[in-house]
């Protein structure tokens, strides 16, 4: 049982993740549940993380994610932008830029040497460039969202999904398919399209090496590859790209104790 324990809880719209760390920032417990804000997801994630860490209480808690404001038990609530930056900087001290593509939002964050945010930019309300776009694509292509990457690996470049509007992109895909493009090629085109949007967004704050990608979409090898191709920057990935919010929050919780 750790001497002091700090928890970060990242409450999103469709998932909740709790991370518990000790004084040395080592992870002692973590758990993710696919239930988001307003559900029992946060409580369940915390209970499991407590169990894993073998504790019944933590010294400090920081909440992040869209559900952070409703989570009254936290000592502080901090945005996922700050938390992602902080978590990434802890694990990759050379990181200067964080590209975070989640289900609803895409963000490009410039990180200061101390792990704080220097500048950032988020997507506009249009879904292009976010995970939501990939969900729509996977539905149209009739495959699971986790299969897209593998599919795109077999695709040939050349299919261009240029529409920024998701509704337009959907019918663009349908007409690509009906004019004979394979679903593999289309999947590759869709990934390229996301990458173009992200790199465009990144231009507003500038990209500097090292670039780290976080968020659920970072699990998609093909998108990561496309972002590398379009931006001309090497992308560093983390073992657990979805956990950075909660991990960063836990680091901020540890700060509160000092």
């Amino acid at each position: 049982m750790p001497e002091r324990a700090y928890m970060g809880i990242d409450i999103g719209s469709s998932s909740s993740k709790a991370v518990i760390i000790d004084r040395d920032a080592a992870i002692r417990g973590e758990h993710i549940i696919n239930l988001g804000t307003g559900s029992r997801g946060p409580a369940d994630a915390i209970a499991k993380a407590f169990e894993q860490a073998g504790i019944t209480k933590v010294d400090r808690t920081v909440a992040t994610g869209y559900g952070r404001i409703l989570f009254k038990e936290a000592d502080k609530q901090i945005t996922e932008i700050s938390c992602h930056a902080r978590g990434v900087k802890q694990l990759v001290p050379t990181a200067e830029t964080v590209v975070d593509i989640g289900g609803q939002d895409a963000k490009v964050i410039r990180v200061k040497p101390d792990g704080r945010v220097e500048n950032f930019v988020m997507n506009d309300k249009c879904a292009a460039g976010t995970g939501r776009f990939l969900e729509v694509m996977s539905r149209v292509l009739g495959v699971g969202i986790d299969q897209l990457s593998e599919l795109a690996d077999k695709g040939k470049p050349g299919v261009n999904i240029s529409s920024t509007c998701t509704v337009f992109a959907e019918s663009e895909v349908i007409s690509q398919l009906s004019s004979g493009s394979s679903i593999e090629d289309v999947a590759l085109g869709a990934h390229r399209s996301i990458a173009e949007r992200i790199v465009g967004l990144a231009g507003r704050v500038g990209i500097e090496d090292d670039v780290v990608m976080t968020g659920g979409v970072a699990l998609n090898d093909s998108v990561v590859q496309a972002v590398e191709d379009v931006s001309g920057h090497k992308i560093t990935r983390l073992k657990d790209p979805q956990g950075m919010g909660a991990f960063g929050a836990a680091l901020y919780a540890r700060d509160l104790d000092n």
Binding site: S162, S163, T164, S171, S175
Partner: peptide
């Protein structure tokens, strides 16, 4: 129909 004078992203051939 929806389109744009130069930005190809705002036009949809099938529409």
């Amino acid at each position: 129909f929806d389109g744009d004078q130069t930005d190809p992203r705002a036009f949809n051939p099938s529409q």
